[in-house]
Amino acid sequence: MSDFLFWWELLREGVLASLAAAIVLPLIGALLFVRRSALLGVAVPQFSAAGLALGLFLIPWFPAVQEEFLHHGHPPMLYSFAFAGGAAALALGVFAALSSRFRDYKQAMMAAGFSLALAVTVLLLNAAPAGAQLADTLLRGEIILLDEHGMVALMVVSGLVLIGLLILWRWLLLVAFDPEQAVTLGHSVVAAERWQVLLVGAAVGGGIVTIGPMLVFALLFLPPLFAVPGKPGVIPYLRRTVLLSLSSVILSWPTSILLDFPFGSAASLVCLAVGLGWVGVWRVSLKS
């Protein structure tokens, strides 16, 4: 019992943050997956990381932020989130505008955007004071180091995104599946696209500044992909996606501690193992 309390005290912020991310990010990933925009889900977090790097680079220009950075080892969450979420939303907006104009080059543009954002991130982090250290922590997905500010920030953002998804999911689904039908039923396609940009930008930006890009990537893509086999229907699919994600994150904690893996890497591998396990179970159940 005392062992449990010791670990709980140590890991509480990280565990709660990872559970919040495990509910929201796969739902966002499922949205990108069914819209065949998975590449967008790779590019946007990288833009978000570039935004965070820009925020770190600009710290010396903001004395209050610098003070908090020196005190806590990271800038204020709202400051980081403004840069990371803003960059994600900006990238989504630019991609949407370019995609409607150059439809045939959509995938190539996202891949190019990813490589450019990666280059900018590295350059800015090199130039930022202590940027490399924070980036290394985020990149490895070491959420054991997450403090209460980070946990609260992620839980608030995740909660708002989840509420947004619950309210808007029919609209987003309708526009994604058959935009013409949405128009005939009197619903704006453009407004739905804007809401989607906002929700994806917030979820990805919030994830990047708190749990890091590796865990964001893993939770965005692996559960929605492995949840495809199963009972037909949108709700069962989304339920499976979240269940696979949650069980992966829960199993990742002992895996990360016992094998001394950074949490991001452990979570990615456990997501893969849990996903493959589910596909295997589903195939066996179909045969029997």
Binding site: L174, Q181, L185, G186, P232, G233, V234, Y237
Partner: peptide
């Protein structure tokens, strides 16, 4: 109401027949 060519709708969506039909009610 509009009825598109079925082939123009994306097959990757895990929608059941009921899921698709109920969209007609979402006005």
């Amino acid at each position: 109401a509009s009825l598109p060519q079925a082939a123009s709708l994306d097959a990757v969506f895990p929608l059941t027949v009921t899921d698709v039909v109920k969209m007609g009610l979402w006005h």
